[in-house]
Design a protein around this nucleic acid. Structure first.
Length: 804
RNA sequence: GCCGGUGUGAUGGAAUUGGCAGACGUGACGGACUCAAAAUCCGUUGGUAGCGAUACCGUGCCGGUUCGAGUCCGGCCACCGGCACCA
């Protein structure tokens, strides 16, 4: 036997797989299809991290197993390569981002290939390739055509460090998700996508797919549907103010009104406000606050009263004051609320601070001490025709009343905002729109796509807040496709999330130059059967791509309403100290070094064995040795082949059980116990003094998805026909998964007293008799009266006794 | 505050969904091989008491249901992730 030398074996088989395109998927076959997908990486300068292979290996195991089971498997890989880090690196080092990207991709690809992942490299995609982003631009044009892409002057999140706008999803805790820079509000004209149009379907269609509860819940929460009422309040100024509330039942308790500082009626009323200076000052102060400041000082309420205009509560005709306060957001509901301090915590705090009246309209708490917000138990009081009703009854009745008066109706609101779809940076897809003074925004004709990025001297963001593309005047100045007059190109680029919103479609037919992918290819492959990725993308990429897919479904481009039939999510791999791996903490493990020291197969087995796949797990440099030992022992079996055909009698049950368990566990994310089962089987084989050829063959196939290189090599050494990648996954016989006799537990009053071995098919009477025959049991029962006897087949006997 | 999740040996984690808690690894300890070490192989390893068979205790805490609870129910606590002035 040769020494187990992973570096030689792995290189050998990787070359063979590449040469033969072993893992290329066919678009034309009778086999059932299986589309496995992992999130394609952003090829950063740092190279691969040990976190990446956890996800990639997991679905590689599934993909390899499904191939052995006779499926036509598509398991593709590509590069999500547009984005800021590349651009920043390019700026700093004066290298074109295209070159930076090319280098990073080469490094990533070599690393992925060294792990023996069975990707179909003939379908590799790259979002920065003009032949790819041609179709990203094409989808944008379709969105524009359907009115779902529009440009709007509005306050947007502006990262002061990236000098770029951000989507709401990219602002985390008031700072930039990517760089941690301060985020302020800036009024800019921006391209937007109407994701809000799909809010309800993005919630409802979660019922069509198999997602983990945490993903579902996070998406639903992010979309933030609420049902309430929109109510028009008359004012002493003449104009009505419309408010949104989820508690219309508390209308009698509305003792004042609050509008957001940006509310347009303030301008309308400017002439009648006696304290206009104070109002203006408050508006300016609110505008200056960054998101970060807003969240930091969240609970301290500020505001100013509009002196000169009052609102009229429609239920009782009372005049109530109107305030401006930044605790009311322009962007949600109508930008104005009725304040019910007795039953809303924020209104209560505001009322206390400004000395406003608090009226109790739902009985059940003490509104002088705190707002009473419980809807389930309260009873209406001080509310005229609502008195005595429950909150739910009152809601129904008041909405009916408002409708009859013509001043209000039921209204559904979402927290989801439209998607800010423009970035003032160089390294992204140009937005294919031309600005013409005469014709307005004119889409570039499809025939002119792709609009490629021009060469520019500097990719530095401009201080003016414009994209660096604005400096490429030759490129910017063009003619209007509509009237032929002089016009300018849009200089903003698309956000990083654009290319990844449809990449899984491109894999189906990656070289098509007539469409994102052919109808036939999409009909065949969609939906993605299993998509694994990180939790951090739940309200970003995962939501965005569902939105784009639904849009493409509506215009007949894709055949399914949802892109991904099943989504799973892996836990992070932490540093050895239990903290998140990062350069600054000095706890980063480089997969290249692990491959060098132990081999890719060991890394793969270890990452699958490390723990519960869905949970975070700390790296352990001593534990990984266990995975290597396991492989070494399997390797050594080649010298322990014993004569005999098939599976030896005593090993039939362990083999059948292991085949069943490994197969099931791979499908249910329990990779750790699948490996444990194979280790246990190996222990059985050692105890049996070796393996037969057939036993070894089966073990190698079971292990192949996890350790593909070593099992191929052993397959060849043992002289089994062909390559193991073309072998057939073993089947099991359910009858041979059970022993003839079983050891059962015997309990007296639920306490374990003995173990007895009985035939597996023994009936209750026989099992109980066998239990009673045991010496210890008899002893424990002496002088006791039997109350009850139970037998759980194959598990235990429990005899309930009491003192006689 | 709201939503989702987790809590089991020294340690990563198992437990067929209400039925023998701790599979499989790692580490540690003891032994074999070796001049020696590494590697490898064998054994022990939840706690307490006992030479021992054995007994009692033990899955974050308190209580409940049940013949029987890591698993179900009620009430807490801690940690992780997400959202957060969304009316």
């Amino acid at each position: 036997m040769n020494k187990y030398d992973p570096s030689a074996i792995e290189k050998k088989w990787q070359a063979i797989w590449e040469e033969n395109n072993t893992f290329a998927a066919s678009n034309d076959t009778d086999k059932p299809k299986f589309y496995a997908l992992v999130e394609f990486p952003y090829p950063s300068g740092q190279g691969l991290h040990v976190g990446h292979p956890r996800s990639y290996t997991a679905l590689d195991v599934v993909a390899r197993k499904r191939r052995l089971q006779g499926y036509n498997v598509l398991y593709p890989m590509g590069w999500d390569a547009f984005g800021l880090p590349t651009e920043n690196f390019a700026i700093k080092n004066h290298i074109h981002p295209e070159i930076v990207t090319k280098n990073n991709i080469a490094r990533f690809k070599a690393q992925l290939q060294s792990l023996g992942l069975s990707f179909d490299w003939t379908r590799e995609v790259n979002t920065t390739d003009p032949s790819y982003y041609k179709w990203t631009q094409w989808i944008f044009l379709k969105l524009f055509e359907c009115g779902l892409a529009y440009k709007k002057e509005m306050a947007v999140n502006w990262c002061t460090s990236c000098k770029c706008v951000l989507a709401n999803e990219e602002v985390v805790g008031g700072v930039c998700e990517r760089c941690g820079g301060e985020v302020i509000h800036k009024v800019k004209s921006q391209w937007m996508l109407k994701i809000t149009e799909y809010a309800q379907r993005l919630i409802d269609d979660l019922d069509l797919v198999d997602y983990p509860e945490r993903v579902r819940a996070q998406q639903i929460h992010w979309i933030g549907r609420s049902t309430g009422a929109q109510v028009r309040f008359a004012t002493t100024a003449g104009e009505d103010v419309e408010i949104y509330t989820t508690r219309p039942d508390t209308l009698f308790g509305a003792t004042y009104m609050v509008m957001s500082p940006e509310h347009p009626l303030v301008e309308t009323w400017a002439g009648r406000l006696s304290n206009l200076d104070a109002v203006r000052a408050y508006q300016e102060a609110a505008a200056r606050k960054s998101d970060f400041e807003r969240t930091e000082i969240a609970k301290d309420k500020t505001g100013v009263m509009l002196e000169g205009v009052r609102a009229i509560n429609p239920v009782n005709g009372k005049e109530i004051p109107i305030f401006l306060s930044d605790y009311v957001l322009v962007s949600y509901g109508t930008g104005a609320i009725m304040a019910v301090p007795g039953h809303d915590t924020r209104d209560w705090e505001f009322a206390k601070k400004f000395g406003l009246p608090i009226v109790e309209v739902v009985k059940g708490g003490d509104v002088e001490k705190e707002a009473f917000t419980d809807c389930a138990t309260g009873v209406m009081v001080n509310s005229g025709f609502l008195d005595g009703l429950s909150v739910d009854e009152a809601k129904k009745k008041i909405v009916e009343w408002l409708a009859k008066q013509g001043i209000g109706e039921t209204k559904v609101n979402y927290k989801l905002r439209d998607w800010v779809f423009a970035r003032q940076r160089y390294w992204g897809e140009p937005i294919p729109i031309v600005h013409c003074d005469k014709c307005g925004f004119v889409p570039v004709p499809e025939s002119e796509l792709p609009i490629t990025l021009p060469k520019v001297d500097s990719y530095e963001p401009l201080e003016s807040g414009e994209s660096p593309l604005a400096a490429a005047t030759d490129w910017v100045n063009t003619t209007c496709p509509h009237c032929g007059g002089p016009a300018k190109r849009e200089t903003d680029t698309m956000p990083q999330w654009a290319g990844s919103s449809w990449y899984f479609l491109r894999y189906c037919d990656p070289h098509n130059d007539k469409a994102p992918a052919s109808k036939e290819a999409l009909e065949y492959w969609l939906p993605v059967d299993w998509y694994n990725g990180g939790m951090e993308h739940t309200t970003l990429h995962l939501l965005y791509s569902r939105f784009w897919h639904k849009f493409l479904y509506d215009i007949g481009v894709v055949p399914t309403p949802e892109p991904y039939a099943k989504r799973t999510s892996h836990g992070m791999i932490l540093g050895e100290n239990g903290e998140k791996m990062s350069k600054s903490r000095g706890n980063v493990v480089n997969p290249d070094e692990i491959v060098k020291e132990y081999g890719a197969d060991t890394l793969r087995v270890y990452e699958m064995f490390i723990g519960d796949f869905e949970k975070a797990a700390p790296w352990s440099s001593s534990s990984i040795r266990g995975s290597r030992r396991f492989l070494e022992r399997v390797w050594a079996l080649q010298d322990a082949v014993v004569p005999g055909d098939g599976i030896r009698t005593g090993l039939e049950i362990p083999f059948n059980k292991t085949i069943r368990k490994v197969g099931e566990d791979i499908e249910t994310l329990k990779y750790n116990t699948a490996i444990a089962a194979m280790m246990a089987l190996l222990n059985d084989l050692s105890a049996a003094g070796g393996v037969t050829r057939e036993e070894y063959r089966i073990l190698l196939i079971l292990l192949n998805p996890f350790a593909p290189h070593m099992t191929e090599e052993l397959w060849e050494i043992m002289g089994y026909p062909g390559q193991i990648a073309q072998a057939q996954w073993p089947s099991f016989d359910p009858d041979k998964c059970r022993e003839d006799t079983v050891e059962i537990a015997v309990q007296i009053n639920g306490k374990l007293r003995a173990r007895v071995t009985i035939p597996a098919d023994a009936d209750a009477a026989a099992a109980i008799a066998a239990a009673k025959a045991d010496e210890k049991v008899a002893q424990a029962m002496e002088g006791m009266a039997v109350v009850k006897e139970l037998y759980v087949p194959g598990k235990l006997v429990n005899i309930v006794v009491k003192t006689a």
